[in-house]
Amino acid sequence: MTAASLPLDSHGNVDQLYIETRELRLQGFLLFLVSDCVLFASFIFAYLYLRNSGQGWPPPGIQRLDVAFAAWNSVVLFGSGATMHYALENFKHGNFMRYMWFLLATIVLGAGFLGGQAYEYTHLIYGEHVTWWGSGIFGASFFTLTGMHGMHVFIGVCYLTVLVLQSAAGVYTRGKFFGITAGTLYWHFVDVIWVVLFSIFYLL
């Protein structure tokens, strides 16, 4: 990090307190992601356990999931990961407007992913009569896991929207932008989880 981007306090001195607090928050946030990961891991374990205790997958009477559609939707989500990455980079380099545009793009893509998921759900529920409670272990694991992931994306979209508003209000400066770092980490985390979910539900 260049000297210019060190966090400064209101007197223009290097803000030691902020640096140390940021370190704590970063560590805390990473640990939060670790335990969130364990939450997903537990449900993934449950899914694989149930899947292997029956005969074949998907269970008879249920169509294989539509890989093509989900693949496109995944591309949307991964694209949002890329835009988020550029948003942070641009912020660090002081390109505020480009940062804002990339951030907005991320939000749009994230919302697009949610829309795709909503479409997929509607199709499953009304088209193929697969429900959370009524379709045995398939419905149980599919809707629980993708639903949990969707919740995470939704929370992420809300958070990024708050970031946009805060950034517009000038909350973040070149030295002090932990909120954006955290948002980026979270967003990438949600992407990585999707890679795993996509592989085990659609490809496996």
Binding site: V34, S42, A46, L50, W133, G136, A140, T144
Partner: peptide, 30 residues
């Protein structure tokens, strides 16, 4: 941090099984 989160998953699954009938643990539904 880690073990308790796993418990949270188990409890959530038990809860939705009981309340919404999502058959995680119900042997009659797989």
């Amino acid at each position: 941090m880690i073990a308790t989160t796993a418990l949270a998953a188990a409890l959530a699954a038990l809860f939705i099984n009981r309340v919404f009938g999502v058959p995680f643990f119900d042997p009659t539904k797989g």
